[in-house]
Structure formats: structure tokens, C-alpha cells
Design a protein around this nucleic acid. Structure first.
Lengths: 152, 152
DNA sequence: CCTTGCTCGGCATATTTATTCAGTTTAGCC
DNA sequence: GGCTAAACTGAATAAATATGCCGAGCAAGG
């Protein structure tokens, strides 16, 4: 039984890649992939994912994932993205390596940058890997533990 | 008679400074300031201003102005940011170094990642410096020239 | 096995938002 | 002025979204 979490991943992916303007459409798309849910459930998902219905200006609308700039809570945002998209976190010396679902690396790296942590020199993002460069090995270990805590 | 434009300015200001969750509330606030309009008009304003109803996660909602992060036109976005915030671009071997105004590095690096260019391995952003790692020296030269063209 | 307490999701409906239609105002332009 | 086209808006309503309530399923503890 594909869980709620899996469904929400699909929804994120859907709104990223298709022009979706109503929740009914989301339900329809999911239906094609074998997931049968009602609009009510989508509404709750949209709420939890903090998706947003962005007016195109011409009277059309498109669902989008929350633009970070509108977020108050960067840590909360990071936590959410970790839970949804991060597969693994590891460390070597003063480098932390984060493995994510395909295509999500730069988005998450951006949020990490926004944390604005003194200990972090910078981030390097590829397709599904983020390299976080920390000033010292000790600091890296601390940051690593913080990141791991985000999964809870 | 305060025009539509004035009303829309007030709306922008309202959603920035108050926790507003419905269009009816906006109409109410405006009413207190002597502007009497119906929800229908607010709906049209919201559309033109591209405001967004952001779920707070706990079941509450708040209207917010649309951050540029939801832009479709990545190249246009990059061009704008280059003109505004980039001070210098240079290259060494397969590395491009971009010098920006303080604090803008990670934002611009994020946009560069969004370009999704095959030649670019990844970006590393500090406070005011971006390192763009390119697959080969030749590719780096080409990308460099593209970046320089963004200033024109 | 039986509770209790949770999470999840459907159904029905309340709430909120978008749009249609029509009336009014505004801005040219002769 | 008078005429026309476009911009603007309210009232009513359609469309879309959020939510109260309930039942199903599941896990922990007794």
C-alpha cells in the first residue's frame, strides 16, 4: 500500500513538471498512476507540503512548491525537505556529503546556505549530491549530527 | 477617488504587515481605510498582484506577495541578478569565479544551478563569491563568455 | 482478546475564491 | 457636446478549497 509519504512525493514531482491548476487535476493525475484519493485528501496534502496556487496574471493558476522567500522558518523548511528528499548523510574530514533524490540537490543546498551558519564555508550541489564544506572537522561532526536530527 | 493602483498598493502593504488569511479580511481592512470594495474586486487584485495564499501547515493561511523565486524565466532572472549584484567574473582553468555584492552569492548560485547546464558540475557559494565548476577548460571559457554577455 | 489512542482518508458540507453578466464610469476622438 | 471603446466594479453564482465528523486500520499496553 503506497503510503501518504509516497503520494506526497508524487504530488511534489507533479507540480514541478506539469502545469497543474486545481486539486482535482492532481487527484486525476494520481489516479492514472493508480493512486485513488479524493480532493479532500489533496487539500490536506497541499497544506502539509505548503504548496501554493500562484496566479499567472492572465486568470490562470498554477500550483507550485513554496518559494523559499515566503518562508519564515528556514529550519522548518529544511527539516521538511530532508524528510521528503534526502536519502543519506555522511562525513569525511571537514566535508559533509548529502545524497538526495534526483534533481533536489540544488534546492536543498540553497536552503542550507540560507541557514547562514558561520561554520559552513559553502555548499556544492550537483544533481543528487550536495557537498557541504565546513571550517573544521569538529564543526563538521556537530553539523552532521544536527542534520541527522532533522530526520526525526 | 483613490484609484485601483492606490488600492493595490495598500493591499501589498497590508499582506506584508498583517496576518491576512482571506480576501474578505482584505476588504474589511480596506473598508476601515475608507475604501469600499467587494471580495470580487479583491480577487481580481490578488490575481494581478500575484499574491499567494500560503498554508502555514497548521491549517492556517496567510496571503503573501509572490517572491521572484517562482519565476519561470530562469535566464531572465539570472540576467537581472547579474546586473544588480555581480561585480566581477573571472576564470582559472575549469573554474569560474563570480564576485557578488555581500550576501548575494548563494541566491545567484541557486539560479545558476537552475540553468541545469550539462557543462556545469556544480556551484560553491560563500558570502560574496561563487565558484562554478565546469567539466572542461574549453567549456568553462564558453560559459564565461555567456556570463559576461549577461551584463550587456 | 480488549481497550485506548493515534493516523489516515472519505463523505458531505462550509468556506473561500473565481467568473459571468450587466451597469457605470472613464478616456479618447470627432 | 455626443459617440464609442475600454476599464472597472458589484451582485449573483460557479468553481475550487478547507474542514467537521466519522469509521477503518494499526500499535502499544493491559
Amino acid at each position: 500500500m503506497p503510503s501518504k509519504e509516497y503520494r506526497q512525493r508524487l504530488i511534489e514531482e507533479l507540480v514541478e513538471n506539469e502545469f497543474i491548476s486545481t486539486q482535482a487535476e492532481i487527484a486525476e493525475h494520481l489516479g492514472k498512476r493508480g493512486i485513488k484519493v479524493t480532493q479532500a485528501t489533496i487539500s490536506r496534502d497541499v497544506n502539509e507540503l505548503r504548496l501554493v496556487r500562484l496566479p499567472a496574471g492572465n486568470g490562470q493558476h498554477r500550483y507550485r512548491s513554496t518559494p523559499l522567500a515566503a518562508q519564515e522558518d528556514v529550519v522548518g523548511e529544511l527539516k521538511q525537505r530532508f524528510r521528503l528528499f534526502v536519502r543519506d548523510v555522511d562525513r569525511g574530514d571537514n566535508l559533509i556529503v548529502i545524497n538526495t533524490d534526483e534533481g533536489h540537490a540544488s534546492g536543498i543546498a540553497y536552503v542550507i546556505d540560507k541557514l547562514d551558519r558561520e561554520e559552513i564555508v559553502g555548499t556544492l550541489a550537483g544533481q543528487n549530491t550536495i557537498l557541504v564544506i565546513v571550517r573544521s572537522e569538529e564543526m563538521a561532526q556537530e553539523i552532521l549530527e544536527e542534520f541527522e536530527a532533522l530526520f526525526e
